[in-house]
Design a protein around this nucleic acid. Structure first.
Lengths: 120, 120
DNA sequence: TCCATGTTTCAACGACTCTTGAGATATTGA
DNA sequence: TCAATATCTCAAGAGTCGTTGAAACATGGA
């Protein structure tokens, strides 16, 4: 992820409705959800409002879409999300231990990474 | 970090100048830099423009300031940055392995966390 | 083919963001 | 006290963002 993409992703996540959509889609899993169902989950937001935010999220790369019959199914892009996290840690915070160590320490507990990964 | 703070932090980082400032201040370390020096590093941005972005960053909690004589010294808030990362991983992505594992795997290599931390 | 359904596109509007330049404020040293 | 330095505050303007409602488009079934 380069700086331009990161700026776009941060802008996408800086809006309450969009942040909620991302949260919802992450929990929904790879199968995703149709736009209409997402709108209902957002306190019944109007379809044009949903479309606005979903296309914003899609342009930022954080979500993906595919058509299924009449519905358009949106799903979270896990690679984009981890790419953003990695950008924030590495490119922006330069892997500074004061920033990253607390996070890694908390996260290894919850995520159980493969212990024998690229860990030179 | 709660959602409101996270939204504000994402908004702060979604602007090129502010992202560059954060990067600069992370590398500058805990001693920070005076506003004028930051402005010079930003292609000689005007003082009012700097003030605008720096107070935006300060309000979001990502940077802190203190007065030193005539200068005001700005420094990165490492806790806020790791708080944001943690929010993104835990609250937003729910610690979803597909998002977090790649990041943690890459980061343990670079950050060398204390192996005996809260790691139930 | 026609209609219903699900979604997008468009125009309009108010609200917010960012930049600029001028002026105000705080601090220091003479 | 005065002047110089470092920074902030304010007002104005161009631009962007988010919402709304109406209309258009795409798909599937009768």
């Amino acid at each position: 992820m380069d700086e331009k993409q990161a700026l776009s992703a941060f802008a996408a996540l800086s809006q309450e409705t969009r942040l909620r959509i991302v949260r919802l889609l992450v929990t929904a899993g790879p199968d995703g959800m149709p736009a209409g169902a997402i709108g209902e989950a957002m306190d019944g937001a109007s379809s044009s409002r949903m479309s606005f935010h979903l296309s914003h999220l899609e342009q930022s790369g954080l979500v993906e879409s595919r058509r299924d019959g009449r519905s358009i199914i949106y799903s979270a892009s896990y690679p984009a999300l981890s790419g953003l996290l990695e950008f924030l840690m590495r490119d922006c915070c330069q892997g500074h231990p004061a920033v990253c160590s607390p996070v890694v320490n908390k996260l290894v507990a919850c995520c159980e990474p493969a212990k024998d990964a690229t860990h030179a």
